[in-house]
Design a protein around this nucleic acid. Sequence first.
DNA 1: TCTGGGGTCCTAGGACCC
DNA 2: TCTGGGGTCCTAGGACCC
Length: 358
Amino acid sequence: MADWVLHVDMDQFIAAVEVLRRPELAGLPVIVGGRGDPTERAVVSTASYEARAFGIGSGMPLKIAARKAPDDAVFLPVDHEAYAVASGEVMAALRALPEVVLEVIGWDECFLGVTTDDPEGVARAAQEAVLAATDLHCSVGIGDNKVRAKIATEFGKPRGVFRLTEENWFAVMGDRPTRDLWGVGSKVQKRLGKHGIATVRELAAADEQMLIAEFGPRMGVWYHELGSGHGPRVVDDTPWVARSHSRETTFQQNLTTSAQVQSAVRELAVQAFDDCAAEGRPIMRVHLKVRYAPFETRTLGRKLAGPTEDREEFIEEALTLAGALDPDREVRLLGVRAEMSMPDDADGLERTPVRGRI
DNA sequence: TCTGGGGTCCTAGGACCC
DNA sequence: TCTGGGGTCCTAGGACCC
């Protein structure tokens, strides 16, 4: 018996949930994003496979999606609550599988830790359990660690299973661009490129000291290991403890006066504060995120004088930060983030550079 | 061509202390 | 008068993920 990591990822999750409650949409290009109005500033959350055939994908501006979409395409607003309910049903079905440890890493994905000689059999059982409970399909990646399991899933989509381990890592991934690795985005891909590293194989063979000099002691080593497909193996079912909460909003018309900015900051600060207050932990820091027109993002941070549970005090701190914004530039996005103290028993939580846990 | 909203973690550099 | 290493904490910002 060996230890395996399975990565379960729902297929076109949000679009699938929408089709489930409106069966008449089955087979149509379905695009979910923003308030469902493709003339507004917003991006695509998920597109159904039928929509993807027209080149529409996650993160694409709705306006662009509308241009590519055929006449029978359906645009829908994001409905967080419906997806949270469906997500809960999916996770419950998987948690009920025998002898698995489940670690949630997003609305529509999780890791399963299992000890078995038949990981494919467990993967199929997971797919059947989810389908029986929710009518939703998923893909499963099998790996000897989290990195390989996560990457394997992409090769299994849709509705499939794929195994990626030490044995086939370089055969499958060696010649692919570094961007295909979990945790390597466009910026890191470019910086690696400056050192002549374009592929996964080249990253694995790179000089670690050079990577440390370029990315720092932690990320340098992490990227090097990533090239060989190494990563954490432990699946941890400890319930997640949020470190911060934020509220942000994109304005359909840019804000042009500081009075407008102040009032928007106040509104968002109240919401972010209340999200944290609901967890009963005091707030330690406040951050402001601003996007100036046309598209330049800045963040400002500030540690509070002491932990606070006083809403007005938090708002004042947020407004103080807002005073440092450039009054001559139009603002198209504002966000306020409240960073909470950690509960005592959550201190020392393991951190890995594989991020994005929600 | 126009780019959301919710998060996590890492790094550089300065302040300060011994 | 000009000057060491080592450590920690904090601020500000960057990168990535779903």
